[in-house]
Structures are given as C-alpha cells and as structure tokens.
C-alpha cells in the first residue's frame, strides 16, 4: 500500500486503472463542452459535422457567435462590474479582519471568529433570500416613513454585490489571516527600533509582506463572484450577470454558442487559477 511494500501486480494495476477512470470522470464533462464549441451543427451534440469557428465569430441570426451576441457580451460586462466591486470590498474588509483577529486580544474573540466563519456554513440560496428580505423591509420602511423610494434596496446590482460580498469576505479573511499569522514580528520591531512610525511600518513592512496573500485572495474573490449562481439568483433583476444569462439560455435549449462561452470561461479561470497557485508557491519560498 506504499511503494516500499510489494503488492501483487494485479492489485497494483487495478488501482492504477481506478485512478485513470477517476481522471476520465473528472475531465470528460469539460472536454465535451470544449469540443462541441467547434461542431458545425445547430445543437451541441453528436453527430460531429466538422470543424467551425461560427460559434465564436458568426454573425447571422441563425448562427450567432459569442463575439456578436450583444446580450451575452453585456452580461459579461455586468458580471465583471459586480466582481470588481465585490473584490475591492471583500479584500478591504478581509485585511482589516485579519489584523483584528491576528493582532488583538479581546473579549469574545473566539466567539466572534466563529461568527466570522458563519457565511461559509449558510447555503447560498438562504444568504440570498435573507438579504432580500432585510433590504426589502428597509426599503418599505423608507417608503412609508419618509416617502422615499430607495432604488438600490430593491433587487439589482447593489444587492447582488452585497450578497456576494457577505460570504466572499470570509474566504478572503482566512487566506490573508493565515499569511499574517506566519509573519515574523521581529521585522516590525526592528523598524520601530529604527524610529519608524506606525503607518510607515504598515506601509513598508507589513503590507508588502501580505501582498501575495492579498493578490491570491483577490483572484479567488473575483472568480467566485464571477461564477456565483445561488446567491445571485435570488437578488438579481433585469441586468443579469453571465451565469444567470447562461442558465436561462440553457433551459431554453442551447446552441453551441453556449459551449463557446463556456470554453472562454474555462480558459480565463484556468489562467487565473494558475496565476494564484504560482503566487502562493512564491509566497511559501
């Protein structure tokens, strides 16, 4: 069961075959999505009718490629807009959270840390509806008492951003907090001894040390926001982000254009994933 203990060859080969099957299981769905993006047919299924790039570049109504589909492109823009704000907000709060929990001792610290982890335990759909309820009752209150219609408290972009920010902050806090915990405090003390002020130490010592973790967490936050479905579904309105648009198309019956979008998504998230792995590798060394 470990390389140094000999096992009958039959068992070894069965084990290897199982591992191979597992990886086929893992890759198969992604491979078919990618392959059928190039099928010269109106449906993303067999038979294979030959290779085409129509589903990327086509501009006839029958064969609308991704790059000519304005509704699809617009939803990519909406998703990017949401992801940008979610990333900025959650990295900011995650960094302050990391300092709070790693650098200070206070009453109920353990309990508050557990509360900080809660958003990970709450199913996305429920996080979505609870924020929907709260913001709606707030909007109704403003309407009744001050006769004000507060547009951003109704389903829409702001609520989607807040909903995703609610749980992505937890993940970012864990990444940045782990890095801060590993920091050698004597670096900061040396700077203080040399007469540096608190803000100077923060700017020249602590934040540069945290940067790899912050970049890694920002990539993760951006991807999680871009790909989020459950929370977004409950909070979105007419400006739908990419995942919601794709979901609607999927239920109507899809053309291989959806495969083309998916392939582009895979490439972008794959590249971002590799960058974040690379950043973390560098952080360890």
């Amino acid at each position: 069961m470990i390389p140094s203990i000999s096992q009958p060859p039959s068992l070894r080969w069965t084990y290897r075959a199982y591992i191979l099957l597992f990886y086929i299981f893992l890759i198969a769905p992604l491979a078919v999505v990618a392959t059928f993006a190039f099928n010269d047919s109106l449906f993303p299924s067999l038979p294979w009718n030959g290779f085409t790039l129509d589903w990327f570049t086509g501009d006839t109504p029958q064969r609308l490629g991704v790059f000519s589909d304005s509704a699809m492109l617009e939803s990519v823009g909406v998703s990017a807009f949401i992801a940008f704000f979610v990333t900025a907000l959650s990295i900011f709060v995650a960094t302050t959270n990391a300092f709070l929990f790693e650098r200070y001792d206070f009453r109920f610290k353990e309990f508050l840390y557990m509360l900080m982890l809660l958003p990970l335990v709450i199913p996305g759909v429920i996080l979505g509806i609870s924020i929907l309820i709260s913001s709606n009752s707030m909007a109704n209150y403003m309407d009744e008492v001050f006769n004000l219609e507060v547009e951003f408290l109704r389903p829409g972009l702001v609520l989607v951003i807040l909903g995703q920010f609610a749980f992505i902050t937890t993940i970012a806090t864990m990444v940045i907090g782990a890095r801060l915990r590993k920091m050698d405090r004597s670096l900061e003390e040396a700077a203080y001894n040399l007469g540096a002020s608190k803000t100077a130490v923060l700017r020249t010592i602590t934040l540069p040390y945290l940067r790899p973790a912050m970049v890694g967490a920002a990539i993760v936050a951006f991807l999680m926001s871009f790909e989020n479905f459950n929370t977004t579904l409950m909070l979105t309105s007419s400006d739908s982000p990419l995942t919601i648009t794709m979901f609607d198309r999927l239920r109507e019956g899809s053309t291989p254009e959806l495969n083309a979008v998916s392939l582009l998504l895979m490439i972008v998230s794959g590249v971002l994933a590799l960058i974040s792995v690379f950043v973390q590798k560098k952080e360890d060394s």
């Binding site: 990886y23 893992l26 890759i27 198969a28 769905p29 992604l30 491979a31 078919v32 999505v33 059928f36 993303p44 299924s45 991807l223 871009f226 790909e227 479905f229 995942t243 794709m246 979901f247 999927l250 899809s254 959806l258 495969n259 998916s262 998504l265 895979m266 998230s269 794959g270 971002l272 994933a273 792995v277």
Partner: peptide
C-alpha cells in the same frame, strides 16, 4: 493540481458538460 483545476470552472459549465454527456 489536475484534481483541482475542474473546480475553478463555473458549476454551470460543469453541469452543462454532464447534460451533453
């Protein structure tokens, strides 16, 4: 790493793959 990479892809895309299969 090969184990991890599929999960960087949106759940929607993964599920779509199973539908095609």
């Amino acid at each position: 790493l090969l184990c991890l990479i599929p999960f960087w892809v949106s759940e929607l895309v993964r599920t779509y793959g199973w539908m095609i299969l």
